[in-house]
Deep mutational scan, measured.
Amino acid sequence: AVSDRLIGRKSVVMEAISPQNSGLVKVDGETWRATSGTVLDVGEEVSVKAIEGVKLVVEKLE
């Protein structure tokens, strides 16, 4: 599936994300709604860990 190619990809937070609120990330020039178990600020680099419905699950790059 097209979405499977996103797992493991680097992306950049475009709208802040917290455990309570989804935000936005940009992956390969496309904007996606995303969630995370931690707070992520605009501009942080993250990695796509999973896809749940139409949202990406991301975490901060170490």
Score class of each variant (00 low, 15 high):
residue 48 V to P: 00
residue 42 V to K: 06
residue 12 V to E: 06
residue 31 T to G: 03
residue 58 V to D: 02
residue 4 D to Q: 13
residue 43 G to S: 03
residue 23 G to E: 02
residue 44 E to D: 10
residue 29 G to T: 05
residue 5 R to E: 09
residue 62 E to S: 13
residue 38 T to C: 12
residue 12 V to N: 04
residue 29 G to K: 06
residue 22 S to E: 15
residue 21 N to C: 15
residue 24 L to M: 10
residue 36 S to K: 00
residue 42 V to R: 06
residue 15 E to C: 12
residue 44 E to S: 07
residue 62 E to I: 12
residue 32 W to S: 00
residue 23 G to V: 01
residue 62 E to T: 11
residue 58 V to K: 01
residue 16 A to W: 10
residue 9 R to Y: 08
residue 36 S to E: 02
residue 23 G to I: 02
residue 2 V to K: 11
residue 17 I to A: 03
residue 10 K to H: 12
residue 27 V to F: 06
residue 28 D to W: 06
residue 59 E to K: 05
residue 38 T to M: 13
residue 46 V to W: 00
residue 17 I to N: 01
residue 7 I to R: 04
residue 13 V to F: 00
residue 22 S to C: 15
residue 32 W to F: 14
residue 7 I to G: 03
residue 43 G to F: 04
residue 1 A to L: 12
residue 22 S to R: 02
residue 43 G to N: 05
residue 22 S to T: 13
residue 61 L to P: 07
residue 40 L to C: 15
residue 31 T to V: 14
residue 17 I to G: 03
residue 16 A to N: 06
residue 1 A to H: 13
residue 25 V to H: 00
residue 5 R to Y: 10
residue 56 L to Y: 02
residue 15 E to K: 12
residue 9 R to F: 09
residue 19 P to V: 05
residue 51 I to M: 07
residue 52 E to H: 11
residue 12 V to C: 11
residue 18 S to G: 09
residue 40 L to D: 01
residue 19 P to R: 04
residue 8 G to P: 03
residue 11 S to P: 08
residue 60 K to N: 04
residue 10 K to P: 13
residue 19 P to Q: 05
residue 41 D to F: 13
residue 35 T to Q: 06
residue 27 V to H: 02
residue 49 K to H: 07
residue 3 S to C: 13
residue 30 E to V: 12
residue 36 S to V: 01
residue 4 D to L: 12
residue 40 L to Q: 05
residue 1 A to Y: 12
residue 39 V to R: 11
residue 1 A to T: 12
residue 36 S to W: 03
residue 58 V to A: 00
residue 43 G to P: 01
residue 59 E to G: 08
residue 50 A to V: 05
residue 50 A to R: 10
residue 54 V to H: 14
residue 3 S to H: 13
residue 53 G to W: 02
residue 45 E to A: 09
residue 34 A to W: 02
residue 33 R to M: 14
residue 32 W to G: 01
residue 12 V to M: 08
residue 34 A to D: 03
residue 59 E to N: 05
residue 58 V to S: 01
residue 38 T to K: 07
residue 44 E to W: 08
residue 37 G to R: 12
residue 5 R to Q: 09
residue 12 V to P: 03
residue 55 K to Q: 15
residue 27 V to A: 04
residue 23 G to D: 01
residue 15 E to P: 00
residue 24 L to N: 03
residue 31 T to C: 14
residue 32 W to Q: 02
residue 27 V to M: 09
residue 3 S to R: 12
residue 49 K to V: 15
residue 3 S to K: 11
residue 60 K to G: 05
residue 39 V to G: 06
residue 20 Q to L: 11
residue 58 V to C: 03
residue 40 L to P: 00
residue 58 V to W: 01
residue 53 G to A: 03
residue 53 G to H: 04
residue 45 E to H: 10
residue 40 L to E: 00
residue 53 G to E: 04
residue 24 L to R: 08
residue 58 V to R: 00
residue 37 G to N: 15
residue 1 A to V: 11
residue 61 L to Y: 12
residue 48 V to H: 01
residue 22 S to A: 13
residue 57 V to R: 09
residue 3 S to G: 11
residue 3 S to P: 14
residue 11 S to H: 03
residue 51 I to E: 02
residue 30 E to L: 09
residue 9 R to Q: 11
residue 38 T to D: 15
residue 3 S to T: 12
residue 9 R to N: 08
residue 33 R to N: 08
residue 49 K to P: 00
residue 58 V to Y: 00
residue 7 I to N: 04
residue 41 D to I: 11
residue 26 K to W: 14
residue 32 W to E: 01
residue 8 G to E: 04
residue 28 D to N: 09
residue 14 M to C: 11
residue 29 G to A: 06
residue 40 L to M: 08
residue 46 V to A: 15
residue 31 T to R: 06
residue 54 V to Y: 14
residue 62 E to N: 12
residue 57 V to S: 05
residue 53 G to C: 04
residue 44 E to N: 05
residue 60 K to H: 06
residue 40 L to T: 02
residue 8 G to N: 06
residue 37 G to P: 11
residue 1 A to F: 12
residue 48 V to Y: 00
residue 28 D to M: 09
residue 1 A to P: 11
residue 19 P to L: 06
residue 46 V to H: 00
residue 24 L to K: 10
residue 19 P to D: 04
residue 16 A to F: 08
residue 56 L to T: 02
residue 20 Q to P: 15
residue 19 P to H: 05
residue 19 P to M: 05
residue 41 D to E: 14
residue 25 V to Q: 00
residue 15 E to L: 10
residue 57 V to N: 05
residue 46 V to N: 00
residue 51 I to K: 05
residue 55 K to H: 15
residue 25 V to T: 02
residue 3 S to F: 13
residue 30 E to M: 11
residue 29 G to Q: 07
residue 41 D to T: 10
residue 48 V to A: 01
residue 7 I to A: 04
